[in-house]
Structure formats: structure tokens, C-alpha cells
Computed example of a mutant assay.
Amino acid sequence: MSKLSEGEIQNRLKELDGWEYKEDAIHTSFEFENFKEAFSVMVRIAFEAEAQQHHPEWRNVYNELTISLSTHDTGGVTEKDFKLARTIEEIVDAG
């Protein structure tokens, strides 16, 4: 999988609401009703990430979830990151 250019990344980010590109990764954050809801979404994301063999860097504090995606093997953002980002969006939207 090849690393995407900054132009390609910015173009693809137009399809994702609330995501931004910085420091060779795409980032977003979500706020949920409570910790239980945040953790439930994290579990669903974890199963999908494992199925895609691509794992997020994330941080959870109470009802907030912050996610960063980057393909470490290439040192930047690839299509794998956007595939997982779209999956994450679907999971969060399904709430």
C-alpha cells in the first residue's frame, strides 16, 4: 500500500466530516452521552479494526474518544486509513 500525497489526503478528507490531517495522520474526535456509550463504540471499532488488520491510535477519557489513523509501515496515510475511517464513521452513525 502506497503513501498518499497531501493533496490526495485533503481531497479524500472532504468525504469525512470532522477529520483533519496533521503530523502524517488523520485525526478526529467524538463525544458520547457517557463512558459506557463511548466504550461500546470502541469495542465495535476494535472488532472491525482487527478484521481489517489495521489498528487506530486512540484515547478515551470518560465520554470522549480521540482517534488517529496512520499506516506505520509507510510512514503516513494510505487507503487503509480511509477505509477504517469510513468504517468508524458508519459505526458511530449507527450509534
Score class of each variant (00 low, 15 high):
E15R: 07
V61F: 05
E31W: 02
E6H: 10
E48C: 04
N60C: 14
W58Q: 00
E50H: 03
N60D: 04
R12F: 07
E37Y: 04
I9N: 00
N11I: 08
R12M: 15
K36E: 13
A49K: 10
T28A: 03
F35Y: 15
T28H: 04
E50Y: 02
I67F: 01
M42Q: 08
L16H: 06
E57T: 09
Q10D: 07
L13Q: 06
R44N: 14
E20Q: 07
E6S: 06
G7L: 13
E15N: 09
E57C: 03
P56G: 03
H55N: 11
L69V: 05
D17N: 12
L69I: 02
I9D: 01
D24G: 02
K36L: 15
H27G: 05
E8F: 12
I67S: 00
E33K: 13
F32H: 04
I26S: 00
E64P: 01
Q10N: 15
K36D: 09
K14A: 14
F30W: 15
S29M: 07
A51H: 15
I45S: 03
H54G: 03
S29K: 11
E20L: 05
E37W: 09
E23D: 14
Y62Q: 12
F47M: 09
Q10E: 15
I26E: 00
E57K: 14
K36Y: 08
V43Q: 14
R44T: 05
E64D: 09
K22S: 10
E37T: 13
Y62C: 12
K14V: 10
I67N: 00
E23A: 07
N11W: 04
A51E: 15
D24W: 02
H27E: 14
E6T: 15
F39Y: 13
P56D: 11
A51P: 06
Y62N: 13
N63W: 09
A49E: 07
Y21N: 04
W19G: 06
T28R: 03
Y62S: 10
A49M: 06
W58L: 10
T28C: 15
Q53W: 09
R59D: 13
A25D: 06
E48F: 03
F47C: 05
E8A: 13
S29R: 10
H55M: 09
V43G: 06
N34C: 12
L65W: 01
F32Y: 10
N11H: 07
Q52C: 02
E8Y: 13
Y62P: 07
A49W: 01
K14R: 15
S40N: 08
A46N: 10
V61N: 02
E64G: 05
W58V: 02
T28I: 10
S68T: 05
T66G: 10
M42S: 11
Y21D: 02
E15W: 09
P56A: 02
V43L: 12
E20N: 02
N11T: 14
N11V: 08
Y62T: 05
I9K: 00
A25Q: 13
W58G: 00
H27T: 06
E37H: 08
E50P: 00
R59N: 11
V61I: 07
G18N: 04
W19M: 10
M42W: 06
E31F: 10
